[in-house]
């Protein structure tokens, strides 16, 4: 049996396999190396950065839900200057593709970040977070209004020579409309989906659990929503999709590929099993080999046929 071809093209970059890790779940690449060698991954998406440093939200920032996790970290990050000075030199040396994730509170914020991050920085792509639910007046505004989303992506695209990935919020009624808008803005690929806005109340204290009241829901609980959105966008929009939202096992990953994702990304699943990416890759490989698929690319969108 010949080996399954895992090589994946995404927005002009070549990945050794179609498996990424999600922004905010994998730090800046150094945290999981004892559990999962970076060279086994197609790439990693770095913790989101903003122009200025942010301490983020107060604790509690996490609340576990049935098969899910609410988080309200609030974009804690070292800021652009510190990222470029202290983190980027290490990121350049990582043995896998590194995708930066940028967030802003205004169009100017996104422009500033995009201008500072170019191909010569050693990054593979820019993921634009227009969908963070955890900051006031934050990214989600851009992610729920198609016109704003298009403008942000167009502004970023005009400033950087890196491929631009738009990370979309699921907290909309028409995900296809949002996808079309960022395509018009010039996005090279889509990340689907960010977290679903949720909350949990402590019935003993009679107060919200999260200090921020609301948080973003991730984990297996949101997977069916994510698969549905990947499916709809794949049918309507001709852009490669990075599927994410609750992928924890290889079966989950295959489901996203069949729905139309070119690449899959593991987020909260890493917390459950720090070797999840390795097990998922093996599972996809065996699935393809047993069914006679020469390339993982053969799976993409197959469930639509």
């Amino acid at each position: 049996m010949s080996p399954v071809d895992f090589t994946t093209q995404l927005a002009g970059i070549t990945l050794r396999n179609p498996l990424l890790t999600c922004s905010g779940t994998y730090g800046f690449g150094e945290e999981y190396t004892a559990y999962c060698p970076l060279e086994s991954l197609g790439g990693i998406t770095l913790k989101g950065i903003t122009p200025l440093p942010r301490l983020g939200n107060p604790v509690p920032r996490l609340a576990e839900t049935p098969a899910g996790l609410l988080n309200a970290v609030g974009l804690e990050n070292p800021g652009l200057d510190e990222f470029v000075k202290s983190y980027l030199p290490k990121v350049r040396m990582l043995p896998t593709a590194a995708i930066a994730n940028i967030s802003g509170f205004s169009l100017e914020d996104y422009v500033q970040l995009a201008r500072a991050l170019q191909k010569d920085s050693g990054l593979a792509a820019l993921e634009v977070n227009i969908s963070c639910p955890n900051v006031k007046h934050g990214g989600m505004h851009f992610g729920t209004d198609p016109q704003s989303a298009q403008e942000v992506i167009a502004a970023v695209k005009a400033e950087t020579d890196l491929p631009v990935i738009a990370k979309l919020s699921p907290n909309v009624t028409d995900i296809v409309g949002m996808a079309r808008a960022v395509q018009l803005g010039g996005a090279d690929a889509l990340s689907l989906i960010n977290t679903l806005l949720g909350m949990q109340i402590d019935i003993h204290r009679q107060r919200p659990v999260l200090a921020n009241t609301f948080g973003g829901l991730s984990g297996p609980a949101i997977k069916p929503v994510a698969v549905r959105m990947v499916w709809q966008v794949f049918q309507a929009v001709d852009l490669p999709i990075i599927g994410m939202g609750g992928i924890t096992t290889w079966q989950d990953a295959v489901e996203f590929l069949l729905a139309g994702a070119t690449v899959v990304s593991i987020g909260t699943g890493n917390f459950v099993n720090p070797q999840a990416p390795l097990e998922i890759l093996k599972g996809i490989n065996d699935y393809c080999a047993q069914r006679g698929f020469a390339s993982v690319r053969d799976l993409v969108g197959l469930a639509h046929n």
Partner: peptide, 14 residues
């Protein structure tokens, strides 16, 4: 503190 990843990646337990 409430912990997510336990390895310093998620910033849940600051």
């Amino acid at each position: 503190e409430r912990m997510g990843c336990a390895v310093g990646a998620c910033l849940g337990c600051v």
